[in-house]
């Protein structure tokens, strides 16, 4: 019961506290409108290069849009606590770390989903890509999985934040790597073999592929293997993130470096 309370109530309260500054004046330009411009940029680059359809770039960039809020927000769960000098208080509580950090991750996944679905919907209208109505429910599921796997990677980034202070810089670099490597704009077949091998182990790769197949008319059942791999990666990232968090928490206590800015 306590774990459920920590997950739901603790997660929601901490999200509100850590992101009180995320008012509509910041949220709308940075998380809703900016991804639309990224979609437009790559749709036009795609048209100039004549390599893929508008739908290819719309889906790739809309899903990649989820990476920004998920990675930055998870990084901020540690950096923000440290900034407000509450990290020490948080980590002295006897609360189990699993519901504590999963509770913080849940609103982040939801936010990533909203950002990505907005990009898909409005971006589709802007570039004239018509996604059939019956495709939206399976697409929403894929977007949720993509958000979860990006949040999982964000948890690892947050854990590293206990040792390295520049989580925002790391988030930017990870977002950039996902842009190049995960088949968002460049078809995977065009990447060097070693980079393609790396992309298999990154979030978004399988979700983007599944979303494109679904938009092209494939059934949900046919993309289950891709969704399974994306879900597996999400779970793997979360486990690794929690393990690193635990290890770095112990080491930070030992070296008294928990709140070093």
């Amino acid at each position: 019961m306590s774990a459920i309370r920590i997950f739901w109530i603790g997660g929601l309260i901490s999200f509100r506290a850590l992101f009180h500054w995320l008012n509509p004046w910041i949220y709308v330009p940075t998380l809703l409108v900016a991804p639309l411009f990224q979609i437009l940029l790559f749709v036009y680059v795609g048209r100039a290069a004549r390599i893929e359809s508008d739908s290819f770039f719309l889906i790739g960039n809309a899903l990649q849009g989820a990476a920004v809020p998920c990675l930055f927000a998870m990084g901020h769960t540690i950096a923000g606590e440290r900034f407000t000098q509450t990290l020490g208080l948080l980590l002295t509580t006897p609360a189990s770390r699993v519901p504590l950090f999963l509770g913080r991750a849940a609103p982040v996944v939801a936010n990533g989903w909203i950002v990505s679905m907005f990009g898909l919907g409005v971006g589709g209208v802007l570039v004239g890509v018509d996604i059939p109505p019956d495709r939206w429910v399976p697409l929403a599921l894929v977007v949720a999985l993509a958000s979860a796997s990006c949040t999982g990677l964000g948890l690892i980034n947050a854990a590293l934040g206990l040792k390295v202070r520049q989580t925002a810089t790391f988030s930017n670099i990870i977002v950039g790597i996902l842009l190049v490597v995960c088949g968002v704009n460049v078809p995977l077949a065009a990447l060097p073999t070693w980079l393609r091998a790396v992309s298999e182990w990154l979030p978004l790769t399988h979700a983007v592929e599944a979303a494109r197949l679904l938009a092209d008319g494939d059934t949900l059942r046919s993309v289950v293997p891709l969704l399974g791999r994306e879900a597996g990666l999400a779970a793997g990232f979360i486990v690794v993130g929690l393990v690193i968090l635990r290890a770095f928490e112990r080491s930070s206590r030992r070296t008294a470096s928990l709140e070093r800015q």
């Binding site: 790559f42 004549r50 190049v180 078809p187 990447l191």
Partner: peptide, 15 residues
């Protein structure tokens, strides 16, 4: 900006 430039380079290279 290099990430965006690399993406564009890769896309135009395919063409």
């Amino acid at each position: 900006p290099l990430f965006f430039a690399t993406t564009a380079f890769l896309m135009f290279r395919i063409s």
